[in-house]
Each structure stands twice: as C-alpha cells, then as structure tokens.
C-alpha cells in the first residue's frame, strides 16, 4: 500500500459518500445518471468475485464490501425509493449503456491476463469502469447546470483514478515485476474521459461561478 493508492481509495470513498449524502439529504437524484450507477454496481460485482476466496487484508475486504453495498443501495434508491425515483431524469438519461457492457465483455474475452473466469471478469470490470462515467457526463451536458454535490461527486470520482495512476507509476519504479498493463491503460482512458469536465470544473472554481458545461 502506498500513499497514492490510499489517497485514491479515500477519494473514491468520498465520492460515494457525497453521492449518498446528496440522495439522502435532498431525497433527490436529479442530475445523477442511473445508468452510470448500474455500471458501477456491475464493475464492483465483477471485480470483487474474489471477496470470499482471497483474503488480502481487513482493509481490502471492508472496502470491497462498502463499495458493493453503497453502489447497490444507490441503484436501489434510484429505482425503488418513492421520493427519490420521482426526481430521476429518465428522459435525459438515455445513453445506451448496454453497448458499453457488451463491448467491455468482448474486450475482456480478447484481452486479459489469464483465460480464467475470475481474470476475464476482472479485465471486464476494468474496461467497464473506464467508460462507466459516460452516461453521467452526457447527462450533465444535457441538463446544463450542475448542482454542487453532483459536481463534487464527479470530480472526486475522476480524481481517485488520477491518484491510482500515480500509484501505478510508484509501483512500477519500486516493485521489480509490476506489470499490470490492463489496469494502467484502462485507468489512463478513464481519467482522460474526465479531461473536459476537470477543465470546466477548474474554470468554475477559479471564477467562483456555477459549473456550466457547454451543451
């Protein structure tokens, strides 16, 4: 464990807590893409298949359970909670995310570390995580104004993967055979997708103005 990875995990945890706060405090999920949340639930379920088979550390197990439970509860809230589901921007959240799932599954079958069930789902989860934010970014551009909590949610979500890239660079130089190219390349793509959001987020923060994404 290194400081970049720990900071990345904490930033990721903060992003989930900010989203939970927004939904429970405002009883609203306006501006949040249900499709992105469903993709993230799938990412965690596919990646943490080893939750009960490989014990790495208490920290690792606890965090996996937290991420799985939080992502499933957000999806449940947005689908089933009577108050929250009413504020879901159903007509704006129209990204066809099933194509992302199919594409990543195909990609995982073609490019993986080992042709085993767990490794293919692990690669699938990394590819899917890289593109999972797309429905959310499309929804933000369509809905124009971004409320603070949603903006912070997306910002922390992007920052966590950027910190992981520092972690991979650090591990590359400190561990003799660190070759997780699938993680690194997926992580780079993932962070790049946040590029324009980060730019507009920084501009709005600098001008102390509301975050406006160009339509």
């Amino acid at each position: 464990m290194n400081i970049f990875r720990f900071a990345g995990d904490m930033t990721h945890l903060i992003s989930v807590l900010v989203l939970l706060l927004k939904i429970y405090a405002t009883k609203s999920c306006s501006g949040i893409s249900l499709k992105t949340q469903e993709l993230y639930a799938l990412v965690f379920l596919a990646r943490y298949l080893d939750l009960f088979t490989d014990f790495i550390s208490v920290y690792n197990t606890v965090m996996k359970i937290v991420f799985i439970m939080s992502s499933l509860s957000i999806v449940w809230c947005m689908r089933m909670h009577p108050m929250v589901r009413r504020s879901y921007d159903k007509e704006l959240d129209t990204f066809r995310h099933y194509f992302l799932i199919a594409g990543c599954l195909l990609g995982a079958l073609l490019v993986h570390e080992k042709f085993t069930f767990q490794e293919i789902f692990w690669a699938f989860s990394l590819y899917l995580e890289a593109v999972a934010i797309l429905p959310q970014l499309v929804l933000l551009q369509r809905s124009g104004n971004v409320d603070n909590l949603t903006g912070q949610y997306v910002f922390f979500l992007g920052a966590y993967r950027a910190l992981y890239i520092l972690n991979w660079i650090y591990r590359y130089f400190t561990e003799k055979h660190f070759g997780r190219w699938i993680s690194c390349i997926s992580g780079l793509v993932q962070t790049a997708l946040y590029g324009d959001f980060f730019y507009y987020y920084f501009i709005s923060w600098k001008n102390n103005a509301k975050l406006q994404l160009p339509a």
């Binding site: 995990d9 990721h12 990646r47 080893d50 490989d54 690792n60 996996k64 692990w122 972690n167 660190f178």
Partner: peptide, 10 residues
C-alpha cells in the same frame, strides 16, 4: 510471487 497473481488493488 503470489502478490502478482492476486489483485491486491481495489
């Protein structure tokens, strides 16, 4: 070593 096999990152 086994560390490389196991995915120790979240």
């Amino acid at each position: 070593d086994s560390d490389d096999e196991q995915h120790d990152e979240l």
